[in-house]
Computed example of a mutant assay.
Amino acid sequence: MPTVRIELDQDLLVAAGAIMGTATSKATIHEALRRIVVHERQLRHFERLAASALDRSPQPAAVDG
């Protein structure tokens, strides 16, 4: 995997590391990326479940007038 050099907000990196309990900058970045991927996969899964549930919900009966 290629090395990528980027400037990071050090205060934000330290805060994220403290929240996630990671010991190094590399571990913090990897854990943050992992969490984003997991979160987005879960969100898409829930969206599919919700759409599926809505598709199967009973439709209101038509009212004759």
Results as ranks from 00 to 15, higher is better:
Val14Tyr: 04
Thr28Tyr: 00
Leu43Tyr: 09
Ala50Trp: 05
Thr3Val: 09
Ala61Leu: 14
Thr28Val: 01
Thr24His: 07
Met1Trp: 05
Ser57Trp: 13
Ser52Thr: 13
Val37Cys: 02
Leu13Met: 10
Arg41Gln: 09
Ala53Val: 03
His30Met: 13
Gly21Gln: 06
Val63Gln: 13
Gly21Asp: 04
Thr3Glu: 06
Val63Trp: 10
Pro58Ala: 13
Val4Ala: 03
Arg48Asp: 15
Asp55Thr: 08
Thr22Glu: 09
Leu33Met: 14
Thr28Gln: 00
Ser57Val: 09
Arg56Met: 08
Gln42His: 13
Glu31Lys: 10
Asp11Phe: 04
Phe46Gln: 11
His45Thr: 13
Pro2Lys: 12
Ala15Tyr: 04
His45Phe: 13
Ala15Leu: 08
Glu7Phe: 10
Gln42Ala: 07
Lys26Arg: 15
Val14Ala: 10
Ile36Val: 15
Pro2Gln: 08
Asp64Leu: 12
Glu47Tyr: 08
Arg41Cys: 06
Gln42Ser: 11
Val38Ala: 07
Arg44Asn: 11
Arg56Cys: 04
Ala16Gly: 06
Gly65Thr: 05
Met1Ile: 04
Val14Asp: 12
Pro58Leu: 10
Leu8Asp: 00
Thr28Ala: 01
Asp55Glu: 10
Ser25Leu: 04
Glu31Arg: 08
Ala53Asn: 01
Arg56Gln: 11
Ala23Trp: 04
Glu7Tyr: 11
Ala15Val: 07
Pro2Leu: 06
Val38Gln: 11
Met1Phe: 04
Leu13Gly: 01
Ala15Cys: 02
